[in-house]
Simulated assay, not measured.
Amino acid sequence: MSPETRWTTTPITAGLLRGALETERTEHGLLPHRLPAWARAQCDDGQLAMAESQPSGVRLAFRTRATAVELDTLPTKRQYVGAPPRPDGLYDLVVDGRPAGQGTVPAGHVLVIDMMAGTSERRPGRPGTLRFTDLPEGAKDIEIWLPHNETTELVALRTDAPVEPAGTPDRRVWVHHGSSISHGSDAAGPTGIWPAVAARAGGVELVNLGLGGSALLDPFVARVLRDTPADLISIKIGINLVNTDLMRLRAFGPAVHGFLDTVREGHPRTPLIVVSPVLCPMHEDTPGPSAPDFRGLEQGVLRFVPMGDPSEVAGGKLTLRVIREELARIVAQRGADDPHLHYLDGRELYGEGDVSELPLPDQLHPDAATHRLMGERFAAAAFGEGAFGEGGGAG
Protein backbone atom coordinates (compact mmCIF):
# COMPACT_ATOMS: atom_id res chain seq x y z
CA MET A 1 0.00 0.00 0.00
CA SER A 2 1.54 3.24 -1.14
CA PRO A 3 2.05 6.01 1.44
CA GLU A 4 0.49 8.32 -1.18
CA THR A 5 -2.80 6.43 -1.10
CA ARG A 6 -5.63 8.94 -1.08
CA TRP A 7 -8.34 7.62 1.19
CA THR A 8 -12.06 8.24 0.97
CA THR A 9 -13.83 7.96 4.32
CA THR A 10 -17.43 6.72 4.10
CA PRO A 11 -19.77 7.14 7.08
CA ILE A 12 -20.88 3.74 8.35
CA THR A 13 -24.67 3.68 8.48
CA ALA A 14 -27.35 1.01 8.67
CA GLY A 15 -27.64 1.28 4.87
CA LEU A 16 -24.25 -0.41 4.51
CA LEU A 17 -25.22 -3.36 6.69
CA ARG A 18 -27.01 -6.63 6.00
CA GLY A 19 -28.16 -9.13 8.61
CA ALA A 20 -28.64 -6.64 11.47
CA LEU A 21 -32.12 -5.80 12.73
CA GLU A 22 -31.09 -2.57 14.43
CA THR A 23 -28.06 -0.34 14.97
CA GLU A 24 -27.00 1.75 17.95
CA ARG A 25 -24.82 4.86 17.94
CA THR A 26 -22.15 4.51 20.61
CA GLU A 27 -19.32 6.69 21.84
CA HIS A 28 -17.03 5.06 19.27
CA GLY A 29 -19.21 4.26 16.27
CA LEU A 30 -22.06 2.03 15.12
CA LEU A 31 -22.99 -1.15 17.01
CA PRO A 32 -25.08 -3.73 15.07
CA HIS A 33 -27.78 -5.54 17.02
CA ARG A 34 -29.60 -8.74 16.09
CA LEU A 35 -32.53 -7.98 18.38
CA PRO A 36 -34.32 -4.62 18.48
CA ALA A 37 -34.21 -2.45 21.61
CA TRP A 38 -37.79 -3.22 22.62
CA ALA A 39 -36.98 -6.96 22.68
CA ARG A 40 -33.73 -6.46 24.58
CA ALA A 41 -35.63 -4.46 27.19
CA GLN A 42 -37.80 -7.49 27.99
CA CYS A 43 -34.88 -9.61 29.25
CA ASP A 44 -31.91 -8.55 31.36
CA ASP A 45 -29.98 -11.81 30.93
CA GLY A 46 -26.29 -11.09 30.33
CA GLN A 47 -25.85 -14.14 28.12
CA LEU A 48 -28.58 -12.96 25.75
CA ALA A 49 -27.19 -9.41 25.72
CA MET A 50 -23.76 -10.71 24.75
CA ALA A 51 -25.11 -13.13 22.13
CA GLU A 52 -27.39 -10.74 20.28
CA SER A 53 -24.66 -8.06 20.08
CA GLN A 54 -22.23 -10.53 18.50
CA PRO A 55 -22.85 -9.95 14.78
CA SER A 56 -23.24 -13.50 13.51
CA GLY A 57 -24.31 -13.25 9.88
CA VAL A 58 -23.93 -9.45 9.82
CA ARG A 59 -21.84 -7.98 7.02
CA LEU A 60 -20.91 -4.67 5.46
CA ALA A 61 -22.01 -4.66 1.82
CA PHE A 62 -21.02 -2.03 -0.72
CA ARG A 63 -20.01 -1.50 -4.34
CA THR A 64 -16.74 0.21 -5.25
CA ARG A 65 -13.76 0.32 -7.59
CA ALA A 66 -11.40 0.39 -4.62
CA THR A 67 -8.38 -1.89 -4.49
CA ALA A 68 -7.68 -1.17 -0.80
CA VAL A 69 -10.07 -1.14 2.15
CA GLU A 70 -9.48 -0.24 5.79
CA LEU A 71 -12.04 -0.81 8.52
CA ASP A 72 -11.56 0.48 12.07
CA THR A 73 -13.50 -1.49 14.68
CA LEU A 74 -13.69 -1.84 18.44
CA PRO A 75 -14.29 -5.53 19.25
CA THR A 76 -15.10 -7.04 22.63
CA LYS A 77 -13.17 -10.26 23.13
CA ARG A 78 -13.74 -12.98 25.72
CA GLN A 79 -11.12 -14.51 27.95
CA TYR A 80 -11.93 -17.41 30.28
CA VAL A 81 -9.93 -17.68 33.48
CA GLY A 82 -7.89 -20.89 33.45
CA ALA A 83 -8.57 -21.65 29.78
CA PRO A 84 -6.24 -21.14 26.80
CA PRO A 85 -6.47 -17.71 25.13
CA ARG A 86 -9.22 -17.50 22.53
CA PRO A 87 -8.16 -16.63 18.98
CA ASP A 88 -9.09 -13.20 17.67
CA GLY A 89 -12.37 -13.08 15.81
CA LEU A 90 -12.14 -13.38 12.03
CA TYR A 91 -13.45 -11.00 9.37
CA ASP A 92 -14.21 -12.66 6.03
CA LEU A 93 -13.84 -10.69 2.79
CA VAL A 94 -16.13 -11.68 -0.09
CA VAL A 95 -15.69 -10.07 -3.52
CA ASP A 96 -18.39 -10.63 -6.15
CA GLY A 97 -19.67 -13.58 -4.15
CA ARG A 98 -16.31 -15.32 -3.81
CA PRO A 99 -14.08 -15.62 -0.71
CA ALA A 100 -11.17 -13.19 -1.05
CA GLY A 101 -9.40 -13.02 2.30
CA GLN A 102 -9.56 -13.03 6.09
CA GLY A 103 -8.27 -10.71 8.77
CA THR A 104 -8.40 -9.89 12.46
CA VAL A 105 -8.40 -6.86 14.75
CA PRO A 106 -6.23 -7.77 17.77
CA ALA A 107 -7.17 -4.63 19.71
CA GLY A 108 -10.36 -4.02 21.67
CA HIS A 109 -12.11 -4.50 24.99
CA VAL A 110 -11.67 -7.78 26.88
CA LEU A 111 -14.40 -9.46 28.90
CA VAL A 112 -12.68 -11.70 31.48
CA ILE A 113 -15.04 -14.50 32.55
CA ASP A 114 -14.42 -16.65 35.62
CA MET A 115 -16.72 -19.63 35.13
CA MET A 116 -15.82 -21.16 38.49
CA ALA A 117 -16.67 -17.99 40.41
CA GLY A 118 -19.55 -16.98 38.12
CA THR A 119 -18.13 -13.47 37.66
CA SER A 120 -16.90 -11.29 34.81
CA GLU A 121 -14.77 -8.17 34.45
CA ARG A 122 -14.66 -5.81 31.47
CA ARG A 123 -11.25 -4.37 30.64
CA PRO A 124 -11.50 -1.40 28.27
CA GLY A 125 -9.39 -1.27 25.12
CA ARG A 126 -8.90 0.75 21.95
CA PRO A 127 -10.04 0.36 18.34
CA GLY A 128 -7.88 -1.42 15.78
CA THR A 129 -7.67 -1.54 12.00
CA LEU A 130 -8.48 -4.30 9.50
CA ARG A 131 -6.82 -3.97 6.08
CA PHE A 132 -7.48 -5.65 2.74
CA THR A 133 -5.25 -4.62 -0.17
CA ASP A 134 -4.52 -5.68 -3.77
CA LEU A 135 -8.20 -6.15 -4.55
CA PRO A 136 -9.21 -6.68 -8.20
CA GLU A 137 -9.46 -3.62 -10.43
CA GLY A 138 -12.85 -2.39 -11.61
CA ALA A 139 -16.27 -2.11 -10.06
CA LYS A 140 -17.17 -4.94 -7.71
CA ASP A 141 -19.47 -5.93 -4.86
CA ILE A 142 -17.68 -6.26 -1.53
CA GLU A 143 -18.92 -7.87 1.66
CA ILE A 144 -17.01 -7.86 4.94
CA TRP A 145 -18.54 -10.43 7.27
CA LEU A 146 -18.04 -9.40 10.88
CA PRO A 147 -16.78 -11.86 13.54
CA HIS A 148 -19.66 -14.09 14.58
CA ASN A 149 -18.30 -14.38 18.13
CA GLU A 150 -17.13 -10.84 18.98
CA THR A 151 -19.31 -7.84 19.74
CA THR A 152 -18.06 -5.32 17.16
CA GLU A 153 -18.46 -1.55 17.08
CA LEU A 154 -17.84 -0.15 13.60
CA VAL A 155 -15.71 2.99 13.82
CA ALA A 156 -14.57 4.04 10.33
CA LEU A 157 -14.48 2.77 6.73
CA ARG A 158 -11.76 4.00 4.35
CA THR A 159 -11.22 3.06 0.71
CA ASP A 160 -9.06 4.32 -2.14
CA ALA A 161 -12.15 4.90 -4.30
CA PRO A 162 -15.71 6.04 -3.53
CA VAL A 163 -18.24 3.60 -2.03
CA GLU A 164 -21.95 3.20 -2.62
CA PRO A 165 -24.39 0.83 -0.88
CA ALA A 166 -24.69 -2.52 -2.62
CA GLY A 167 -28.45 -2.13 -2.94
CA THR A 168 -31.19 -4.60 -2.18
CA PRO A 169 -30.19 -8.12 -3.27
CA ASP A 170 -32.48 -9.92 -5.70
CA ARG A 171 -32.69 -12.99 -3.48
CA ARG A 172 -35.17 -14.49 -1.10
CA VAL A 173 -34.61 -13.69 2.58
CA TRP A 174 -34.13 -16.59 5.00
CA VAL A 175 -34.55 -15.81 8.70
CA HIS A 176 -33.17 -18.50 11.00
CA HIS A 177 -33.35 -18.77 14.80
CA GLY A 178 -31.39 -21.23 16.91
CA SER A 179 -28.83 -21.79 19.65
CA SER A 180 -25.05 -21.36 19.85
CA ILE A 181 -24.66 -23.95 17.10
CA SER A 182 -26.64 -21.70 14.76
CA HIS A 183 -24.81 -18.69 16.19
CA GLY A 184 -21.54 -20.25 15.03
CA SER A 185 -19.92 -21.89 18.08
CA ASP A 186 -16.54 -23.17 16.82
CA ALA A 187 -16.89 -22.42 13.10
CA ALA A 188 -13.77 -21.43 11.16
CA GLY A 189 -15.07 -17.92 10.49
CA PRO A 190 -18.25 -15.91 9.93
CA THR A 191 -18.94 -17.36 6.46
CA GLY A 192 -18.21 -20.85 7.86
CA ILE A 193 -21.13 -20.98 10.31
CA TRP A 194 -23.57 -23.61 9.09
CA PRO A 195 -26.45 -21.18 8.29
CA ALA A 196 -24.08 -19.10 6.12
CA VAL A 197 -22.88 -22.25 4.32
CA ALA A 198 -26.49 -23.27 3.69
CA ALA A 199 -27.54 -19.78 2.58
CA ARG A 200 -24.70 -19.61 0.07
CA ALA A 201 -25.62 -23.02 -1.34
CA GLY A 202 -29.31 -22.09 -1.49
CA GLY A 203 -28.73 -18.68 -3.07
CA VAL A 204 -30.63 -16.80 -0.35
CA GLU A 205 -30.02 -13.77 1.85
CA LEU A 206 -29.40 -14.77 5.49
CA VAL A 207 -30.68 -13.07 8.62
CA ASN A 208 -29.19 -15.14 11.44
CA LEU A 209 -30.95 -15.03 14.80
CA GLY A 210 -28.88 -17.87 16.22
CA LEU A 211 -28.34 -16.71 19.81
CA GLY A 212 -25.77 -18.60 21.87
CA GLY A 213 -27.33 -20.08 24.99
CA SER A 214 -30.58 -18.23 24.29
CA ALA A 215 -32.88 -20.28 22.03
CA LEU A 216 -35.40 -20.60 24.83
CA LEU A 217 -38.80 -20.03 23.18
CA ASP A 218 -38.86 -16.46 24.50
CA PRO A 219 -42.08 -14.71 23.42
CA PHE A 220 -40.22 -11.55 22.41
CA VAL A 221 -38.06 -13.56 19.99
CA ALA A 222 -41.23 -14.98 18.43
CA ARG A 223 -42.50 -11.41 17.96
CA VAL A 224 -39.20 -10.42 16.35
CA LEU A 225 -39.57 -13.30 13.89
CA ARG A 226 -43.18 -12.29 13.30
CA ASP A 227 -42.20 -8.72 12.45
CA THR A 228 -39.06 -9.39 10.36
CA PRO A 229 -39.58 -9.53 6.57
CA ALA A 230 -38.89 -13.09 5.44
CA ASP A 231 -39.52 -15.39 2.50
CA LEU A 232 -38.27 -18.45 4.43
CA ILE A 233 -38.11 -19.15 8.17
CA SER A 234 -36.52 -21.90 10.23
CA ILE A 235 -36.51 -22.41 13.99
CA LYS A 236 -34.06 -24.81 15.61
CA ILE A 237 -35.29 -25.74 19.09
CA GLY A 238 -34.00 -27.95 21.85
CA ILE A 239 -30.48 -27.98 23.18
CA ASN A 240 -30.69 -24.75 25.19
CA LEU A 241 -33.90 -25.88 26.86
CA VAL A 242 -32.05 -28.98 28.06
CA ASN A 243 -28.72 -27.46 29.05
CA THR A 244 -30.39 -24.64 30.99
CA ASP A 245 -33.00 -27.03 32.46
CA LEU A 246 -35.47 -24.23 31.85
CA MET A 247 -38.81 -26.03 31.64
CA ARG A 248 -40.57 -29.36 31.92
CA LEU A 249 -42.51 -31.29 29.29
CA ARG A 250 -45.84 -29.85 30.51
CA ALA A 251 -44.68 -26.32 29.65
CA PHE A 252 -42.70 -27.23 26.54
CA GLY A 253 -45.54 -28.28 24.23
CA PRO A 254 -47.73 -25.20 24.83
CA ALA A 255 -44.66 -22.96 24.58
CA VAL A 256 -43.84 -24.36 21.13
CA HIS A 257 -47.45 -23.89 20.00
CA GLY A 258 -47.46 -20.31 21.31
CA PHE A 259 -44.14 -19.52 19.61
CA LEU A 260 -45.39 -20.84 16.27
CA ASP A 261 -48.75 -19.07 16.67
CA THR A 262 -46.95 -15.75 17.08
CA VAL A 263 -44.67 -16.29 14.09
CA ARG A 264 -47.67 -17.23 11.98
CA GLU A 265 -49.40 -13.95 12.84
CA GLY A 266 -46.88 -12.20 10.62
CA HIS A 267 -46.08 -15.01 8.19
CA PRO A 268 -49.21 -17.13 7.74
CA ARG A 269 -48.07 -18.86 4.54
CA THR A 270 -44.28 -18.52 4.64
CA PRO A 271 -42.42 -21.85 4.39
CA LEU A 272 -41.37 -22.60 7.98
CA ILE A 273 -39.14 -25.47 9.05
CA VAL A 274 -38.99 -26.61 12.67
CA VAL A 275 -35.57 -28.22 13.19
CA SER A 276 -35.04 -30.51 16.17
CA PRO A 277 -31.67 -30.84 17.95
CA VAL A 278 -28.62 -32.36 16.30
CA LEU A 279 -27.13 -35.34 18.07
CA CYS A 280 -25.49 -34.54 21.39
CA PRO A 281 -24.69 -37.86 23.08
CA MET A 282 -24.46 -36.53 26.63
CA HIS A 283 -28.02 -35.16 26.53
CA GLU A 284 -29.79 -37.73 24.36
CA ASP A 285 -31.23 -39.49 27.41
CA THR A 286 -29.78 -37.49 30.30
CA PRO A 287 -31.48 -34.21 31.25
CA GLY A 288 -29.69 -30.98 32.01
CA PRO A 289 -28.46 -28.71 33.17
CA SER A 290 -25.06 -28.74 31.51
CA ALA A 291 -22.06 -27.49 33.44
CA PRO A 292 -18.41 -26.83 32.64
CA ASP A 293 -16.06 -29.64 33.63
CA PHE A 294 -13.86 -27.59 35.92
CA ARG A 295 -11.31 -30.39 36.18
CA GLY A 296 -10.71 -30.05 32.47
CA LEU A 297 -10.70 -26.27 32.70
CA GLU A 298 -7.82 -26.42 35.15
CA GLN A 299 -5.91 -28.36 32.49
CA GLY A 300 -6.72 -25.73 29.86
CA VAL A 301 -9.49 -27.75 28.22
CA LEU A 302 -13.12 -26.59 28.22
CA ARG A 303 -15.68 -29.41 28.17
CA PHE A 304 -19.23 -29.75 29.41
CA VAL A 305 -20.93 -32.48 31.40
CA PRO A 306 -24.60 -33.27 32.09
CA MET A 307 -25.83 -32.72 35.64
CA GLY A 308 -29.23 -34.38 35.39
CA ASP A 309 -30.28 -37.98 35.99
CA PRO A 310 -32.09 -40.14 33.39
CA SER A 311 -34.60 -41.18 36.05
CA GLU A 312 -35.85 -37.57 36.15
CA VAL A 313 -37.38 -37.91 32.66
CA ALA A 314 -40.36 -39.67 34.24
CA GLY A 315 -41.04 -36.48 36.18
CA GLY A 316 -41.11 -34.34 33.04
CA LYS A 317 -37.47 -33.30 32.61
CA LEU A 318 -36.45 -32.76 29.01
CA THR A 319 -33.87 -34.65 27.00
CA LEU A 320 -33.08 -34.28 23.33
CA ARG A 321 -34.90 -37.51 22.53
CA VAL A 322 -38.03 -36.27 24.34
CA ILE A 323 -37.86 -32.92 22.54
CA ARG A 324 -37.55 -34.52 19.10
CA GLU A 325 -40.58 -36.72 19.72
CA GLU A 326 -42.64 -33.77 20.94
CA LEU A 327 -41.62 -31.46 18.08
CA ALA A 328 -42.43 -34.12 15.48
CA ARG A 329 -45.84 -34.62 17.12
CA ILE A 330 -46.61 -30.89 17.24
CA VAL A 331 -45.64 -30.28 13.62
CA ALA A 332 -47.70 -33.27 12.48
CA GLN A 333 -50.69 -32.02 14.50
CA ARG A 334 -50.47 -28.48 13.11
CA GLY A 335 -49.67 -29.66 9.62
CA ALA A 336 -53.28 -30.57 8.95
CA ASP A 337 -54.11 -26.85 8.87
CA ASP A 338 -50.69 -25.49 7.90
CA PRO A 339 -49.29 -27.09 4.73
CA HIS A 340 -46.31 -24.71 4.77
CA LEU A 341 -45.06 -26.01 8.13
CA HIS A 342 -42.34 -28.67 7.97
CA TYR A 343 -40.23 -30.74 10.35
CA LEU A 344 -36.54 -31.62 9.98
CA ASP A 345 -34.91 -34.06 12.39
CA GLY A 346 -31.64 -32.42 13.45
CA ARG A 347 -29.89 -35.77 13.31
CA GLU A 348 -30.06 -35.47 9.52
CA LEU A 349 -27.57 -32.62 9.92
CA TYR A 350 -25.36 -34.36 12.51
CA GLY A 351 -26.25 -37.84 13.72
CA GLU A 352 -25.08 -41.16 15.02
CA GLY A 353 -23.01 -41.92 11.93
CA ASP A 354 -20.93 -38.77 12.38
CA VAL A 355 -19.80 -39.07 15.99
CA SER A 356 -16.74 -41.25 15.49
CA GLU A 357 -15.32 -39.15 12.64
CA LEU A 358 -16.47 -35.73 13.85
CA PRO A 359 -16.86 -35.84 17.65
CA LEU A 360 -18.04 -32.72 19.48
CA PRO A 361 -14.79 -31.28 20.91
CA ASP A 362 -16.36 -29.94 24.10
CA GLN A 363 -19.20 -32.52 24.19
CA LEU A 364 -21.67 -29.79 23.14
CA HIS A 365 -20.59 -27.78 20.07
CA PRO A 366 -19.54 -28.89 16.57
CA ASP A 367 -16.17 -27.98 15.07
CA ALA A 368 -15.49 -26.15 11.81
CA ALA A 369 -15.70 -29.25 9.61
CA THR A 370 -19.04 -30.20 11.14
CA HIS A 371 -20.41 -26.71 10.51
CA ARG A 372 -19.62 -27.10 6.82
CA LEU A 373 -21.21 -30.54 6.77
CA MET A 374 -24.36 -29.32 8.54
CA GLY A 375 -24.72 -26.39 6.15
CA GLU A 376 -24.38 -28.62 3.11
CA ARG A 377 -26.87 -31.13 4.51
CA PHE A 378 -29.42 -28.44 5.42
CA ALA A 379 -29.16 -26.96 1.92
CA ALA A 380 -29.70 -30.40 0.38
CA ALA A 381 -32.71 -31.08 2.61
CA ALA A 382 -34.37 -27.65 2.49
CA PHE A 383 -33.64 -26.18 -0.94
CA GLY A 384 -34.10 -27.75 -4.37
CA GLU A 385 -37.07 -30.07 -3.93
CA GLY A 386 -37.34 -29.33 -0.22
CA ALA A 387 -39.55 -26.96 1.76
CA PHE A 388 -37.39 -23.97 0.74
CA GLY A 389 -37.40 -24.84 -2.96
CA GLU A 390 -38.30 -22.08 -5.43
CA GLY A 391 -41.90 -23.28 -5.49
CA GLY A 392 -42.18 -22.82 -1.73
CA GLY A 393 -43.78 -19.38 -1.99
CA ALA A 394 -42.99 -15.99 -0.47
CA GLY A 395 -43.77 -14.44 2.87
Rank of each mutant, 00 (worst) to 15 (best):
L225I: 14
L260Y: 13
V224A: 12
R248I: 09
R248M: 14
T262W: 04
V204F: 07
V242H: 10
R264G: 13
V274R: 00
L260H: 07
D245Q: 02
R223Q: 14
P229F: 00
D218M: 13
G213N: 01
P229V: 01
G253S: 15
R250W: 01
H257K: 04
L211A: 05
D231V: 14
I239W: 01
T228M: 08
L211S: 07
V242P: 11
V221D: 13
A215R: 00
T270F: 08
A251Y: 00
R248S: 09
G213S: 03
D261W: 00
L232A: 06
R269I: 02
M247E: 03
G258I: 01
V242W: 10
L260D: 09
T228K: 07
V221W: 12
L216I: 07
V204A: 05
P254T: 07
R223C: 09
T244C: 07
I237A: 10
D261R: 01
I273N: 07
I233F: 01
R250E: 13
V242L: 07
A251N: 02
G238F: 09
I237E: 09
L209F: 03
F259I: 11
N243F: 15
D227E: 15
I237Q: 11
D231I: 15
T228H: 04
L260N: 10
A201L: 14
D231M: 15
G212K: 00
N240H: 10
A201R: 15
E205T: 06
G203Q: 12
I233N: 00
T244K: 15
L260M: 15
L216D: 08
N243Q: 15
D218S: 11
A230D: 07
I233W: 00
F252K: 03
V256D: 05
G266H: 07
L232G: 08
P254S: 05
R269L: 10
T270Y: 05
A215C: 14
S234G: 09
P229C: 00
V224Y: 09
V221S: 06
P219I: 11
P271W: 06
L241D: 03
L216M: 14
L206Q: 09
R269N: 10
R264V: 06
G258A: 13
A230I: 10
G213H: 02
P271Y: 05
G212W: 00
T262S: 12
D261N: 08
D227S: 11
G238H: 06
D227H: 04
F259N: 12
A255Q: 09
V256P: 06
T270Q: 05
N208S: 11
F220H: 14
V224Q: 11
T228F: 03
G210Q: 08
